[in-house]
Amino acid sequence: MSGMERTLSLKDMLAGSGCTPRTVRFYEREGLLRATRTRGGHRAFSPDELDRLNFIVALREAGWSLEEIAELLATRGTATNDREACQRLDRTLSARLGELERKLDVLTRLRADLEGTRQALAVCRDCTQAAPDRACCLGCTRLPEPAELPRGFRLTWRGEG
């Protein structure tokens, strides 16, 4: 395309993001994405919109609401000047980074617990092979004391014992 900026089709946006057509159309309707139309009426996105879409998807996966994302993306445009925009954006990002750190701590602890649960469950696999209906866990000597077992294991496998 001589002189023209390359555009992305809806199909390109889907391939580059893993989103569904419905999601891309929804974000466009909500004003989070911008598309022009080809002569044939198809959506045409700038490459920056794919980057924007992937950023939106990441924020959504991190737990942000659409309203929070829209507000973040509009910060500079809604501020009276760049100084105000910079300050607002910095405050928002600082608060959200704190929230992310707390979530990361929780997720790190949860991952360790669930990995430990899988390891303990691997020990139980032998017993369930020998007694598939209901293995007797009460006198088990192959696992540590219940208090030393991961919480996930205690609550899912040993919860009935």
Score class of each variant (00 low, 15 high):
60 R>D: 12
61 E>S: 11
61 E>Y: 14
62 A>L: 15
65 S>G: 14
69 I>H: 03
69 I>K: 05
69 I>M: 09
70 A>V: 13
71 E>C: 12
72 L>M: 14
74 A>P: 05
79 A>V: 09
80 T>G: 13
82 D>Q: 06
85 A>W: 12
86 C>K: 00
87 Q>E: 14
88 R>C: 04
91 R>P: 08
91 R>C: 04
91 R>W: 11
93 L>K: 00
94 S>W: 11
94 S>G: 13
100 L>V: 11
105 D>Q: 01
106 V>A: 05
109 R>L: 09
109 R>P: 00
110 L>C: 03
111 R>P: 01
111 R>Q: 01
112 A>D: 02
112 A>M: 01
113 D>C: 02
113 D>E: 08
114 L>P: 02
114 L>N: 00
114 L>F: 11
116 G>H: 01
117 T>Q: 03
119 Q>N: 05
120 A>E: 03
120 A>I: 02
120 A>R: 02
121 L>C: 10
122 A>G: 05
127 C>A: 12
128 T>Q: 10
129 Q>Y: 06
129 Q>I: 13
130 A>W: 09
131 A>S: 12
132 P>C: 08
132 P>Q: 08
136 C>H: 10
137 C>Q: 00
141 T>A: 08
143 L>K: 01
145 E>A: 15
146 P>R: 02
147 A>C: 05
151 R>D: 10
152 G>L: 06
152 G>W: 09
153 F>G: 04
